[in-house]
C-alpha cells in the first residue's frame, strides 16, 4: 500500500492493459505528481480522449471524464473556463492528440489555457490494433504500413512550443522519477503544459517492429534518451541516434481563463 493509491479506484484494479504495457507506469507517475504537487482531490479533474491510454481516467479517483476520440482538450477547455479554480489534467494518446485531435492540441497551446496535458506516446494506435499514428517514427511498421511508414513523424514537443505552449517536457517510462518531476512542474505552470511521455506498447507496436519484450523496450529508452544539456553537446550525427528528455521549454504568456475572466468582468461592469 502506498499513499498515492488513494488516487486510484482500487476496486477497478487490475487494469485492462496488456502485460508490460507502459500505461500503468505513466498513470502511477501522474498520481504521484498530483500528490507531490499537493492538489486537492476534489478540485482536480482528469479528462481523457479515446485509446488504451485514455482508459486511465477510469482508474483514477477524481472527477473524471472519458470523452470522444481526440476531444479531451475541448472538454478540458470547457471545464477550465466554467470553473477556473479547478486543476485540469488531460490524458491523451499519440493518435488522440496529434491525429484526430491535432487541431485541438495546437489551439489549446495557442490559447495557453491552463491545462496539464500528459501525452502517452507509444508511437502507434494501440487500441485499434496497431495502425500508424503521426508519431510513428519514419520507417517503422504498422498494420497500415506493412513495409514501414513513409511519413515523417511530428515532434509533439516542438509542435506545442511553436503553437504557444508555455511548458514543454519529455520523459519516458524508464525515467519514472523524472516523469513525476516533469508533471509536477507542468501542474505548477499557469498555462498550457505538455509532458510527452514515451511509453512502450509491446503488443501493437513492439511485436510488429521486433523490439523485444517490454523490458527490452524500456532498455531502449534508457540507451537512447539524453538529458537536454547532454543532448545539446552532441554532434549532429550523434543526435540522430538520441532524443532529448527533461524540460525542453519554458515560456511566459497570458493565460486564457484569466484573460477570459477579465473580459467577463469588463463586459459586466464596463471599463472606467
Amino acid at each position: 500500500m502506498r499513499t498515492y493509491e488513494k488516487f486510484f479506484r482500487m476496486n477497478r484494479l487490475p487494469h485492462i492493459w496488456c502485460p508490460g504495457c507502459g500505461n500503468g507506469i505513466v498513470m502511477k507517475a501522474i498520481v504521484q505528481a498530483i500528490e507531490k504537487a499537493g492538489l486537492d482531490q476534489d478540485k482536480t479533474v482528469i479528462v481523457s480522449g479515446i485509446g488504451c491510454s485514455s482508459r486511465a481516467s477510469g482508474y483514477m479517483n477524481f472527477d473524471t471524464l472519458h470523452t470522444a476520440h481526440g476531444r479531451a482538450i475541448p472538454f478540458a477547455t470547457g471545464i477550465k473556463l466554467a470553473n477556473p479554480e479547478l486543476n485540469v489534467i488531460v490524458i491523451t494518446g499519440d493518435g488522440d492528440a496529434t491525429a484526430i485531435g491535432g487541431n485541438h492540441f495546437i489551439h489549446g497551446a495557442r490559447r495557453n489555457i491552463d491545462l496539464t496535458v500528459v501525452l502517452f506516446n507509444n508511437n502507434i494506435y494501440g487500441m485499434t490494433g496497431g495502425q500508424a499514428s503521426p508519431l510513428t517514427p519514419h520507417g517503422k511498421k504498422a498494420t497500415t504500413a506493412p513495409y514501414g511508414t513513409v511519413d515523417r513523424a511530428f515532434d509533439p514537443c516542438q509542435l506545442a512550443q511553436a503553437a504557444g505552449a508555455t511548458f514543454v517536457a519529455r520523459s519516458t517510462t524508464f525515467h519514472v522519477p523524472q516523469t513525476v518531476d516533469a508533471i509536477v512542474q507542468g501542474i505548477g505552470n499557469k498555462g498550457f503544459s505538455l509532458i510527452e511521455t514515451i511509453t512502450q506498447c509491446p503488443i501493437a507496436y513492439g511485436r510488429k517492429n521486433k523490439l523485444g519484450d517490454a523490458a527490452n523496450m524500456l532498455k531502449w529508452m534508457s540507451e537512447h534518451a539524453a538529458p537536454l544539456a547532454a543532448y545539446n553537446k552532441l554532434s549532429d550525427e550523434q543526435k540522430a541516434e538520441k532524443f532529448p528528455i527533461g524540460v525542453l521549454y519554458k515560456g511566459a504568456a497570458p493565460e486564457y481563463s484569466a484573460e477570459y475572466a477579465k473580459l467577463i468582468k469588463q463586459a459586466m461592469e464596463g471599463k472606467k
Binding site: 484494479l13 487490475p14 496488456c18 502485460p19 508490460g20 509491446p202 519484450d213 517490454a214 523490458a215 524500456l218 532498455k219
Partner: peptide
C-alpha cells in the same frame, strides 16, 4: 499476485 501479469519487467531490472 492477482495483479501480476508476468511481464518480466521487475525480473529484468532487478
Amino acid at each position: 499476485s492477482k495483479r501480476c501479469k508476468g511481464c518480466n519487467i521487475c525480473v529484468a531490472f532487478c
